[in-house]
């Protein structure tokens, strides 16, 4: 197994002085799917923004053997695909096809090559029929699929998804989990959704106060940090009676 991501002692402070990352150590191996758990504001999203150079802190970040810096950023951004939480901001081009072709065109492909890549990526996520539609008119689940296609069209080695289930209904979440399970790339998923993480990830890390407090299997992290919510049946019944 090759090591895809190697982060050592990563520290980052926002401009207003708030410390966001206080020494994160993280590795990702080929074929892994890792869930990032942790409270809101614990540094998960800040962390993933360092992986492709959107933010730059102290410490070392290596992706596929390349240290992230100004020179390597273009190469790194084609190896690591970042799917943002809000698809509406990610799908900025006027049609689905043009949006998915945006990445390949940036890689320097010709118009025909980029369109072919985009069609293939849309077929992979089951959205081939939507190529000429406007992103605004798609459902939340369809938007998420198109956003993933936009990343797949760049043929990355690692997929990073930030809160991918936020706007999805349960069937949409199930469909997304199925799609992700079929994709061969290594994955990092920032999520609060335990069933989703159980279905898609084989490892989990827990962020607390800007560091990784613990790591292990998804079940282990959930039970150790009490990181799930099941309604108390007795209270549920009482409220229903009233």
């Amino acid at each position: 197994m090759a090591r895809l991501i190697d982060v050592r002692n990563l520290r980052f402070r926002y401009e207003d002085g708030a410390a966001a990352l206080n020494g994160v150590d993280f590795r990702l191996e080929e074929g892994e799917a890792v869930a990032l758990f942790g409270a809101n504001g614990s540094g998960k999203t800040t962390f993933v923004m360092h992986l492709n150079g959107l933010l730059a802190g102290e410490g070392s970040v290596e992706v596929c053997g390349l240290a992230v810096d100004r020179q390597t950023i273009p190469a790194i951004r084609r190896k690591i695909g970042l799917v943002f939480q809000d698809s509406e901001s990610q799908l900025f081009m006027p049609t689905v096809l043009e949006d998915v072709a945006f990445g390949p065109l940036n890689l320097g492909m010709s118009s025909e090559q980029a369109a072919a890549r985009a069609h293939a990526a849309l077929a992979t996520v089951g959205m081939a029929a939507a190529a000429s539609r406007a992103p605004y008119h798609l459902s939340a689940g369809e938007k998420k699929r198109v956003a993933i296609a936009g990343i797949l069209a760049m043929d990355p080695e690692i997929l990073v998804l930030d809160e991918p289930t936020t706007f999805l209904d349960p069937p949409g979440q199930r469909a997304l989990a199925g799609l992700l399970a079929d994709l061969p790339q290594a994955k990092i998923l920032v999520t609060h959704n335990i069933p989703f993480a159980l279905a898609t990830c084989n490892r989990a890390v827990f962020f607390q106060g800007g560091v990784i407090a613990a790591e292990g299997s998804v079940e282990e992290m959930v039970s150790r940090f009490g990181w799930d919510f099941t309604p108390d049946p007795s209270k549920l019944n009482r409220r229903q009676r009233a």
């Binding site: 923004m49 492709n52 959107l54 273009p74 951004r77 084609r78 695909g81 970042l82 943002f84 901001s89 990610q90 900025f92 096809l97 043009e98 072709a101 945006f102 990445g103 065109l105 940036n106 890689l107 118009s111 980029a114 369109a115 936009g150 990343i151 760049m154």
Partner: peptide, 16 residues
């Protein structure tokens, strides 16, 4: 940010 993450080089290229 989403544009940068997909390799935006500073100017737009579009499909013909």
């Amino acid at each position: 940010r989403a544009m940068l993450a997909r390799g935006f080089p500073g100017h737009f290229r579009t499909l013909d």
